[in-house]
Every structure is written in structure tokens, then in C-alpha cells.
Design a protein around this nucleic acid. Structure first.
Lengths: 149, 149
DNA sequence: TTTATCGTAACTAGTTAAGTTACATGAAAC
DNA sequence: GTTTCATGTAACTTAACTAGTTACGATAAA
């Protein structure tokens, strides 16, 4: 799993879970999907469990399941549950008392807050169901072309 | 200079330059503003010179000057010149051929492109002049309160 | 009781970016 | 023309972050 691909890796995992809604998938299985380690998976999606997006169960036959219907899981929630920051730049003061810095931070913070709200709004309209639908389309296309050839 | 604060540090520097439009400021001076090393400054704002946002001159009396009026320098240009990525997540394929991944990347890429355009648009409306104006307001406020006390 | 699974702490390794040193290049001042 | 002051840049060091790994306790089904 590369740097900065936690969101896409997590979505990858979730689509697989959505495709097998009745079957608990183990961290081991999920890890193979994104070519990584089971512990990394558990660590990465621990936040999703806390947010109710997925559930986990221990012991024999245990594993991971979606916590609710794919239509009710938005990318905004997933991103937030991962603790991802939408905008990469920081606005932490480094020279408290410097008026120039204060002005810079004020303007940048205004932008950051507005931008974050905007991105969150956009992400809240994309659901896991949209992703599975897109996957299904691709899957069916391959099927058709296989028949054709 | 902390991680991820290249944009705000650079803006800090630029406001100082805008406040002394006739005086070439050395990397040494700029470095003290943001508590770092002259070489780090040169490296950081090298891209701004290539973009014409600032100019530099060597030798005795040399240093850095704004390349044009603060009203004509937008945060969008500055951010771009720094090589900053507005959105932090990657959409690089890691399992080419996996339809799930393709679906995830497709949806995420659509979002990323739209979001980037949106952020850039917003940033293009904020200029260095806005920052200096904000600084001036704060500066004058302090002055007034000093008089009052 | 055994086996399969998650939860989590602790450590290792790889990557990135800042910080630093060193020196060549260029331009003004004397 | 020599000295001084600046940038440009390569090369190295250091610090921080994060993925990856190992280990083991807790839990639940067979």
C-alpha cells in the first residue's frame, strides 16, 4: 500500500465487502485485495468501525461486514473516519505575535474552512453504492465483450 | 519551518517583500522571518522566480523582489509555483486489471479533477494584495489601541 | 480444548522533506 | 582587480512520518 492511498485502498476494500454482503471477510482476505498486511488493514479501517461504517467480529468465522447499506455510506463519512485531511497545508502559527503571520493564517484559514466544507459537500453525494454500480458496469461490459469474442 | 507549511511560509515571505517594494531582501533576512535556513528559502521560492512572481539578483546589494504588483499575484499561482498538490490523496493504480480498483479510481479521479478545478478557481481570486491589506488592518488596529492606552 | 480471528503494542524499515555544509558563480564596491 | 556580498545548487545529514512486521492477549466458534 503506497503512501496517500489510504482512501482508495479503503474504498477498494469496501466495494469487495459490498459485493459479498452476507460473508464476513477476514483482515487477511482484505489485505490481499490491496497487497498489504492484515495488521495494516485492521489499523486502517479501525476508524470505520468506530463510525459504524463496518462491523468486526472475533473468533472462528469472524471478520468484517458493512455496518449499513452501501447507499447510506458516503465518501465524506469514509474520508472523515479515516482521519484524512482533505487539504494538505497547515495553518499552525509558528511565530505567535507576528502580524504578518496572523494575516496569512487568517486568509488561509478562511479559504481552508470554505474549501473543506465544499469538498465534504461534494463527497457526501458520492456513496459506496455509486462505486459498486460503477464496478458492476465494468464487470458486465467485460462479460459482454467476452461473449462477443 | 514545519512540514506542510510551505504555502503559509511563502506567503509570509511575500507579504514582507510587498511591504518593502523598493528593497531587495536577502535569503538570510527572509529566512529569519520564517525561522529557517537561507538555503531552504532559496530552494522553496526558486519556483516562484521561474513563474515570474519574484526576481532575484546576485552579488552585493542583491536579494529578492516581487516580480509584479501584489494585485497581480494570486494564491493559485503561488501554490502552483510551489508545486503544491491541492488534494493529498493519490489515484495511482496498484493492481492494474482489477475492476474494483478501476471503478474506485474512476470515481475518485472525477472527484479530484472537479475539486482541484474548484479550489484553483477560489485561490485565483485571492491575491497577495488581499493579504497585505489584512496585515495593514491588523497593524493599524494595534497602532490605534496603543494610542488609546 | 483447539482453532480462527480481531485488537493492539512495540519495533523495523523506507520515504520524504527540512536542515546543513560547501563551493561555484556573479555583481557591486573599493 | 581584488574584496565582499549575494544567489544557485549539489551533496549530505537529520528528523518525522507511515507502512510493514512481529508478537501476543482476548474472544468466539467448532
Amino acid at each position: 500500500m503506497k503512501r496517500n492511498s489510504r482512501l482508495s485502498s479503503t474504498l477498494h476494500i469496501l466495494v469487495h465487502m459490498a459485493e459479498k454482503p452476507a460473508q464476513a471477510l477476514t483482515s487477511e482476505q482484505l489485505a490481499t485485495f490491496i497487497h498489504t498486511n492484515p495488521v495494516v488493514v485492521r489499523r486502517t479501517i479501525a476508524g470505520l468501525r468506530d463510525a459504524g461504517i463496518v462491523t468486526s467480529s472475533r473468533g472462528h468465522g469472524g471478520g468484517w461486514l458493512l455496518g449499513r447499506a452501501p447507499e447510506d455510506i458516503s465518501l465524506a463519512e469514509i474520508s472523515a473516519a479515516l482521519g484524512e485531511t482533505l487539504l494538505p497545508f497547515s495553518t499552525e502559527p509558528e511565530s505567535p505575535g507576528c502580524l504578518v503571520e496572523q494575516a496569512v493564517i487568517a486568509v488561509l484559514d478562511d479559504f481552508r474552512i470554505a474549501a473543506e466544507r465544499l469538498l465534504q459537500e461534494k463527497l457526501s453525494h458520492i456513496t459506496l453504492a455509486d462505486l459498486t454500480a460503477d464496478f458492476r458496469r465494468r464487470y458486465d461490459l467485460i462479460g459482454v465483450s467476452s461473449h462477443a469474442v
